[in-house]
Nucleic acid binder design. Structure first.
Lengths: 71, 71
DNA sequence: ACTGTGCGTATCATATATGATACGGGAGGG
DNA sequence: CCCTCCCGTATCATATATGATACGCACAGT
């Protein structure tokens, strides 16, 4: 049984970990995927129920497959 | 490079395949996850950019892990 | 022919993700 | 002490996912 709130937090945490692991700033990633920096901050804080589109854009900016973020 | 529109269509197709594979009707799945039947129809037609919450609810109704739908 | 059921789709209202902007704080360099 | 980044967060506007409802069609059973 999946708890979607937990899942959102997990996805957010993975994104942040990948980003910092690659030494990228929030600004840089936001710029790469044409997402508002403030929005990306909210997302990484796990405070938004993101859409597939947004997840894909961020995955592209981080240069990782979807499966790396959604497990 | 991930194309989010393609990804949405893939996810929609997997959901439909799993549902029909289990012999469930759209109504039944919609009822199980408390989602509008019309909305689930739209989703399976690949016409909406679904949120993580919605995907999780549907996965629960289909009794499959997230990884079965998002690859 | 009639009825019930499942599905797709259209429309409108509502909730909410995202865009846009602004402010404050911490860290580091001059 | 100033700057300059980077980050978190708050607020408001806008775009859009979803809820709610309705209609038409195909199909099966009677």
């Amino acid at each position: 049984m999946i708890n979607y709130q937990t899942e959102i937090r997990h996805i957010a945490a993975r994104m942040k970990k990948i980003r910092t692991g690659k030494g990228l700033s929030v600004q840089e990633v936001a710029y790469r995927c044409d997402i508002e920096r403030s929005n990306l901050s909210r997302i990484e804080a796990g405070r938004t129920n993101l859409t597939i589109k947004t997840i894909c854009l961020i995955c592209n900016a981080l240069n990782v497959p979807l499966s790396e973020v959604v497990k």
